[in-house]
Computed example of a mutant assay.
Amino acid sequence: MDIHQILKQLPHRYPFLLVDRVLELEKGKSIKALKNVTMNEPFFGGHFPHHPVMPGVLILEALAQAAALLAFDTLGAAPDDKTVYYFAGIDGARFKRPVEPGDQLILEVELDRMKAGIFKFKARAKVGDVVATEADLMCTMRSIA
């Protein structure tokens, strides 16, 4: 899935779209996506000016966006304009390696279970073969109309 297909699925836009490409997608099971981290990211100006590091909460957000793409594929459709996909919980978040400009963040998310509109995922973000971040994510879709 390239950026054009991602833009059709996710409502996020610059500077908050944090998935550049989907590398693998197995319906109802898992997704592998990537985020190219460049020095041009708007958050690097303040986090931190002399040692730029991607904020951990944005790594978690990138994982949640990848999880949303997996959920939409599993359900067979993206939400419409009257539906929003929300974070409902994050457990066991661990930050094991800083993510810096020039890194390619590989987002790996597995669907753990899905029941009554609640999705639970096992997620990890890697740089190369090294885990940078891991967490259990819980997300849900809600009508806003």
Rank of each mutant, 00 (worst) to 15 (best):
V53A: 06
V127I: 14
M114N: 07
S143C: 07
R97W: 05
G76M: 03
Y86D: 03
V19I: 07
A93F: 09
L34R: 08
P98D: 04
L70F: 06
D103E: 05
L63Q: 12
V53F: 00
K35S: 03
D136T: 12
A77I: 04
E41S: 13
H47R: 07
A123S: 14
G102P: 10
H4N: 15
N36S: 11
I31M: 07
D2F: 05
G76F: 08
A78C: 14
M138G: 02
K115H: 14
Q65W: 09
Y86T: 00
K96W: 04
E100H: 11
N40V: 08
A88F: 07
L25Q: 06
I118N: 00
L69R: 00
L10G: 02
L63F: 14
N36T: 13
A116Y: 11
R113T: 12
A145W: 00
Y14F: 15
G46Q: 14
T83G: 00
D91A: 12
K120Y: 09
K126L: 15
K32Q: 13
K8L: 15
R97A: 12
F72D: 06
A145Y: 01
P15G: 10
K82D: 14
D81S: 15
D2L: 04
S143I: 06
M141E: 12
N36R: 06
A93G: 12
T133A: 06
A78R: 08
F121I: 03
F121P: 01
N36A: 14
D81L: 14
P52I: 13
A145H: 08
I106Q: 10
A135R: 00
L18T: 04
A62K: 03
K122R: 15
A125W: 02
Q9S: 06
E100C: 11
D81W: 00
G92Q: 13
R124Y: 01
R113N: 15
K126N: 09
G56N: 04
L63V: 13
G45W: 05
Y86W: 11
K29V: 13
A71Y: 00
A123E: 07
Y85H: 10
T133D: 06
A68N: 05
G89F: 06
L137G: 02
R124G: 08
K29P: 00
G56Y: 06
A116V: 08
V99S: 00
R124C: 10
R113I: 09
V109E: 00
S30A: 12
K82T: 10
F119A: 06
V84N: 02
V37H: 09
D81C: 07
A67W: 01
R94A: 13
I106G: 07
V131R: 05
E41W: 10
I106E: 14
T83V: 09
I3P: 02
V37G: 02
F72I: 04
I90Y: 03
P42R: 08
D2G: 12
L7M: 15
A64T: 06
L69S: 03
V84C: 08
A62S: 13
L63D: 11
D136M: 08
Q104I: 15
L137C: 08
V131Y: 04
K27W: 02
H51Q: 15
D136A: 12
P49R: 02
E100D: 00
P52N: 14
